[in-house]
Nucleic acid binder design. Structure first.
Lengths: 116, 116
DNA sequence: ATAAAATAGAACGGAAGCGAAACAAAGCAG
DNA sequence: CTGCTTTGTTTCGCTTCCGTTCTATTTTAT
């Protein structure tokens, strides 16, 4: 079974969810940061700067900066790879899980508000 | 009937859609700008700076700056209200409609990719 | 051991966002 | 007409993001 969202429903869903985040004063991640965060939490580890940069087709400094910001927010953590010490392993955090749980709730509720 | 998106599906949908926008090099609107744009296109006119600021619970300069940016992108247009010339009426544009059509397509396709 | 490659980060200048405050223009009330 | 209010914008100082380029560290190849 696939979710069937027509284009009007899609925009209303996006609108509801964006509004809810703005109104909730959710700390404002950019679209790129959001994509990075969700990749870290939804795809199988390990995650490296290089891997994320390739997955999103952006340069490595973009990932580094995003990790700086989200690291300060405690949404992700960095750790050196003990095997190959050039690599940085990006890890999930409790705070990050909570953040995404809240985001999921907002989106889910927004979908529930759609009339079709 | 309501759309039922559970929380895992919600995150995957958001992830797919965010990834698609990043990969497509869609001009990067902030969450606030997105919320403003969608409000303009999905809710009944007329739209004013004051009204949008109230709807999103942000200050008026936030709206002015967003309109500056999105106006340069041709996603919206400004017009003085002839009746009360203090007001600015925000209008839709062809380019804005196309932009949102593309966004709707991305979201709709992302939803279709969900397995439930 | 030495050179080459790979990885992540730092430095730079430029663009754009933010909140707070000040401002100009238009309408309204007396 | 003269103030007062409303509306939208501008300005200020600050922060953060961007792409590009350069650097430091580590690993690999010869």
């Amino acid at each position: 079974m696939t979710m069937d969202l027509d284009e009007s429903q899609s925009l209303h869903l996006w609108h509801n969810a964006a509004m809810a985040q703005v109104l909730d004063n959710v700390p404002d991640l950019t679209l790129r940061q959001t994509a990075i965060l969700l990749t870290i939490y939804l795809q199988r580890p390990p995650h490296t700067v290089r891997g994320l940069a390739a997955a999103l087709n952006v340069t490595k400094p973009v990932i580094t900066r995003a990790l700086d910001t989200m690291g300060m927010m405690k949404l992700v953590a960095r750790k050196r790879d003990p095997v190959d010490r050039r690599n940085v392993i990006i890890q999930r955090t409790v705070e990050g899980s909570l953040y995404l749980e809240k985001l999921a709730d907002i989106i889910s509720k927004s979908a529930g508000d759609l009339k079709s």
